[in-house]
């Protein structure tokens, strides 16, 4: 295809692509390379004049079992959150794409997107108000139910999952919605006319055809949740120590930037390996 591009077209291509790539270069690639460089240092150059180059920060991950435990804990959290996002998000996208039309759809969409417009910290603190003991949720339930209910959700793993699902749900809904909307209604009508049940239509037509969208959404949720630190810290209490919070500690509390950087790149490597392992499934879904 590249051979077919004429010089004039190529010029146009460069002009259109260069702003984006220039921006990525300056805002992503350069800081990331600086971080990669830091991850191989013994000390930050401005703090210790006798800094040197080392692999020790990466060896630290292997020698200290704490980091492995936390990595497993974070991966488990990410899987849980992703599953909940799919379970809640996909049916919602299905209804939005296939059952509801016009104004009602717009209004429902707005409610899906709304969390995106508010600051993530504000979202988490509102959850803290809702979940805490004698908070909004408990009071509401006790007002409706005759017996006394103590949820005690705040500072538990459940609270972290609730907060994260709320934050990342829109990704799954939006990507699934786009994939589902592209499914031709005639296909569904044809299946129905041949006697397919609703479940069969979902299983044989809708799900396979919208799988790329659903998986894209799942990846968009999974990757940031593995490294999340704000929600666990605020909502998780003593249960809220994850891989992401330990990285954050290295940067803001302990000032061990080299170790923090090394831990971040190990996380990046693990995520890439997982996505690569899943890529056969992803590819099959695309065809």
């Amino acid at each position: 295809m590249a051979d077919l591009v004429t010089p004039a077209e190529r010029r146009r291509l460069y002009t259109l692509l260069s702003p984006a790539y220039l921006w990525l270069m300056v805002a992503v690639f350069l800081p990331l390379s600086a971080m990669l460089f830091f991850s191989f240092l013994t000390d930050m150059p401005q703090d210790a004049p006798d800094w040197g180059v080392t692999l020790g920060n990466y060896a630290e991950f292997l020698s200290n079992p704490t980091y492995g435990t936390l990595m497993a804990k974070s991966l488990k959290l990410a899987v849980t959150v992703t599953l909940f996002c799919i379970l809640i998000g996909y049916p919602c996208a299905l209804v939005l794409a296939k059952s509801i039309k016009g104004r009602a759809r717009e209004a429902l969409f707005l409610m899906v997107i709304l969390p995106f417009w508010s600051n993530s910290l504000v979202r988490i603190f509102s959850w803290a108000i809702v979940l805490r003991g004698n908070g909004v949720l408990e009071r509401a339930i006790n007002w409706v139910l005759p017996f006394d209910v103590r949820l005690n959700l705040m500072f538990t793993t459940d609270a972290v999952v609730i907060g994260l699902v709320h934050s990342y749900l829109p990704y799954v809904i939006l990507t699934s919605y786009l994939a589902l909307q592209a499914v031709d209604d005639d296909l569904i009508d044809a299946a129905r006319s041949m006697g397919a049940s609703k479940l069969t239509i979902l299983r044989r037509i809708l799900l396979p055809l919208s799988l790329p969208g659903l998986l894209a959404g799942a990846v968009l949720v999974f990757v940031p949740v593995v490294g999340s630190f704000m929600e666990p810290r605020i909502l998780g209490g003593r249960m809220g120590t994850y891989y992401g919070t330990v990285i954050e500690d290295q940067f803001v509390a302990v000032y061990n930037w080299p170790l923090g950087a090394a831990l971040s790149f190990i996380l990046l490597a693990v995520v890439i390996v997982i996505l690569a392992a899943a890529s056969p499934v992803l590819k099959r879904a695309q065809t």
């Binding site: 704490t66 435990t69 936390l70 003593r238 120590t241 330990v246």
Partner: peptide
Amino acid sequence: YLEIWQALKAAQ
């Protein structure tokens, strides 16, 4: 100290 403390927190 940091290693001990982090291990204690991670075990929760």
